[in-house]
Design a protein around this nucleic acid. Structure first.
Lengths: 221, 221
DNA sequence: AAATTTTTTTCCAAAGTGGACTAGTTCCAA
DNA sequence: TTGGAACTAGTCCACTTTGGAAAAAAATTT
């Protein structure tokens, strides 16, 4: 009967404890690992909690449910990648377009190696018409892609990148980096390629650049 | 006490019924679909049976268990691909190396489109140190790769393919084809690319060839 | 019709599922 | 230092799913 008039809801606002952010991080790390290995359906909350070394009801406490945990985990992957990318670009603020593209490729490669889930999570969700795939495209993916497509079109216009659909070209580059790293276990035994080694990662980067950006950049002055 | 002396095991050998090969095919098709979507762990035998429209104990009857079914399904994918490949090559028995490479790329693209599991199944197993991955590399993969690496090295020596590790180069080509098709659902919404369309598949083929085989083939005489 | 292959139907024991709930502990703020 | 909030541990639950066994029924071949 008596209406809840706590509309303005003065919050006491006590700060989050340190140990809590630690468990959240542990859970996120474990979730990223598990989801990228076995997909959403193939992963149980208990598996995640075990990997994190944490009691499984803590997932409910910190993330409400499995779905929210997936979102938080995915969000973290792409957010971190974006940070790496921004940082790398900030180091070469007025480089030529080609040099920037090279930096992009190498940053993507290095981040993918430390976090192969960047590509794998997408692959796991690209199998059916899940709402999770929708969320991925709407949130981290399409905005980033649109930007990169433009940069690539520019590279084509100055003769650095080969002609053809920029979108197609970008996705080719993307799978050559992230897609190959997602296969690194296979590559080790089928092709004697060890993408955990710095040398071979660098070699892959060189190859990608040589193949996809064969043109010489026009001199600035 | 009385030893089983049926060593030579004269088999009456009654012929397999037609309906049985049909259900086997249905089960294999369903298994390929399910395993490539959800991985081995994420797939239940009941799910497979449902997709096949068949009672689930038939899996035990025809394939002994889930593991054997996976092997049979995987075997079929690669066997069929090999058949497509041999057929395509037989049509151009004395073409130049570059033309053969182009035929390879296009065949791989077309087969991947009709059977995206060719790449997806590998990806599903490349996530941990499973014995299934071992089986994949030992049986269908490495033999095929070794051969292709050689052909690619030859293309490099005649200046058609760019320099660099042939193995790395081959795997780049491979993911540009199969890896992109495995992502086709994502590409549709992030990049407006529809890899179910003949035109865009052809465009991708052109692009791969232009990027990875930029050199002109030397004239034969 | 007999023999055998294939399918149907039923069953099981075990494990795993996501999540609710309570009691206890640790920490922050006054 | 103490009240209360943030956090964790530990149980529990109702339910589904798991892979596979086993027996009975049906369909085909010989």
């Amino acid at each position: 009967m008596n209406a809840e008039i706590a509309e303005i809801a003065e919050k006491p606002e006590r700060k989050q404890q340190q140990r809590s952010v630690v468990t959240q991080q542990k859970l996120l790390d474990a979730a990223i690992e598990a989801f990228s290995e076995n997909g959403f359906k193939g992963t149980s909350t208990r598996d995640i909690a075990d990997r994190a070394g944490v009691h499984h009801p803590l997932i409910t406490y910190h993330f409400k449910n499995k779905d929210q945990l997936w979102r938080a985990a995915t969000d973290r992957i792409f957010r971190d990648f974006n940070i790496s990318l921004v940082k790398a670009m900030a180091e070469i603020p007025d480089a030529e377009p080609k040099a920037k593209a090279e930096a992009f490729v190498r940053t993507y490669l290095h981040y993918s190696r430390s976090q192969p889930a960047l590509h794998r999570i997408i692959l796991q969700e690209a199998n059916g018409e899940h709402e999770r795939m929708q969320w991925l495209t709407d949130n981290p993916l399409r905005p980033m892609f649109d930007e990169v497509h433009k940069a690539l079109a520019n590279l084509q216009s100055i003769g650095v990148a080969p002609q053809g659909s920029p979108a197609m070209l970008f996705n080719m580059i993307r799978v050559c980096a992230g897609g190959l790293i997602a296969l690194k276990l296979e590559l080790k035994s089928t092709s004697n390629i060890d993408l955990d080694s710095d040398e071979q990662i660098a070699e892959l980067g060189d190859l990608i650049i040589r193949v996809f950006f064969p043109g010489d950049p026009p001199k600035i002055n």
